[in-house]
Design a binder for these strands. Structure first.
Lengths: 246, 246
DNA sequence: CGCGCCCTTGACCAGACTCAATATTAGTGG
DNA sequence: CCACTAATATTGAGTCTGGTCAAGGGCGCG
């Protein structure tokens, strides 16, 4: 076990583990995957992988596609608590049952990992790192749900689809002044509403307003073009209006 | 390394790890604590332990007292993202900086753990388990913030202070029909509001209404008596009105 | 006793929700 | 390929919950 022999001289670790350790744990994870021919399962869009309350037999790794985790109140109200990207783990539980429903948004490739295969040490570290990222995302989502207006919520949601913008160390627009981005939404208006803690009508109205204002364009209902990313970034409420990045 | 030799025969693990494994990792954690005389620091009420953006040098374990983690928007809006109890870890980060402010609610005892002391394997498992519990709590909080009314939020908040009630396998009221509970709030109205995604006025109004309705009593502003726990539990929105537990 | 802080209450307002009608899109079968 | 249908999205009108602003009350502490 080389793990325990590792030297860590970094004065300030990058989060829980240094870069070296991160590489090591990723290797450990990949090794585990390689050895034990674990099941990879394909799901269609809008299929449920597990329900809240199901016994938590195994954990999952999302390889391809997009998945949402949500919880339901007895009267039918729904809150999407996480939207997952490839590389994310899910189904990890503190208790013996899943605490929310996992449903695919698009067609997905999912790796299933039985608990007994998780005793490997290096794997624990990999799981740790995934959870840390998740927790940070949920902190930001709590701010969105608790404190942001409808416009700020939808703007924040759109900014998720622009890599390296609106985050710490945002580079600003490209040199040539071009500052737009186009992407396809994998979620319906209802799913977006349930993720942002709004109603479908409010989501629709906000998107329509943004279109009329010209900050976004819609090729199709699910094909969004952000015309001016910086502008939208300022609409998220997360950035101060005075510290414009252009 | 006994860790890798452990046999796990449980058909369905309790969450990520079996009961045995849980005991093992707790021992590993305690051993680590015992060996390395780690600093224990005392904080007064309403002291900041670290700010958002500070370099994440170390992690912390809350030994005694109560702590909140919050994030601020540039215009001053605040969202409390977690309220911690003794035993909880905090300061764990995916990045090199803390993603939120940690501030004490009451006087606290806090153990500081440098990153280089965290390489031990058994410790990783302990951290894992803490994070899993945290994640589940945040899922529930997301439902509260995204989908619950003011009354439901305050009721849910109060139910946090009643152990073993309002959760899966709730025992219901005692045999003798007594169904009340008294506790002291460590948070001001403003802190409660920022935790529940409401304003101070709304929190105050809801509490006053509950008092007028007779479901709670207030000895002092921060001393709450839930007169009828089952009733309040039904006001949380989490329980179906038809499945009363008495 | 008086000051300051926190909490409560009231009146009014606004943003988001509800309900309802209509428009658009995607999917299906002739 | 087009017509038809079902599902999804948009828009409007009206309502209501919770926010805002402002004033007053209570309590602890010097």
């Amino acid at each position: 076990m080389a793990y325990l022999d590792m030297q860590h001289n970094e004065p300030c670790g990058a989060g829980l583990l240094s870069h070296n350790a991160l590489a090591d744990q990723k290797r450990g994870w990949d090794d585990l995957i390689a050895q034990s021919r674990m099941k990879v399962h394909a799901y269609a869009a809008h299929e449920v992988i597990f329900y809240e309350g199901d016994p938590a037999h195994r954990i999952y790794e999302l390889l391809e596609g997009s998945i949402m985790l949500y919880k339901l109140l007895p009267d039918g109200r729904r809150q999407v608590v996480e939207v997952l990207q490839p590389g994310n783990l899910f189904g990890l539980q503190a208790d013996e049952v899943y605490d929310c429903v996992a449903e695919t948004l698009t067609a997905c490739q999912v790796r299933m990992i039985e608990h007994r295969e998780l005793r490997e040490v290096a794997v624990q570290s990999h799981i740790n790192q995934c959870m840390l990222t998740q927790i940070q995302a949920m902190h930001e989502h709590a701010v969105l749900l608790g404190r942001k207006s409808a416009v700020e919520r939808v703007s924040s949601f759109f900014m998720r689809f622009v890599p390296n913008r609106g985050v710490y160390g945002c580079l600003g627009p490209r040199e040539d002044g071009e500052d737009s981005s186009t992407f396809t939404l994998a979620m319906t208006r209802q799913e977006i509403a349930d993720y942002l803690g709004l109603t479908i009508e409010t989501v629709s109205r906000v998107i329509s307003n943004m279109r009329r204002q010209g900050v976004i364009q819609l090729e199709k209902q699910d094909r969004v073009r952000l015309v001016n990313i910086c502008k939208i970034c300022q609409m998220t409420g997360t950035r101060d209006k005075d510290t414009e990045d252009f």
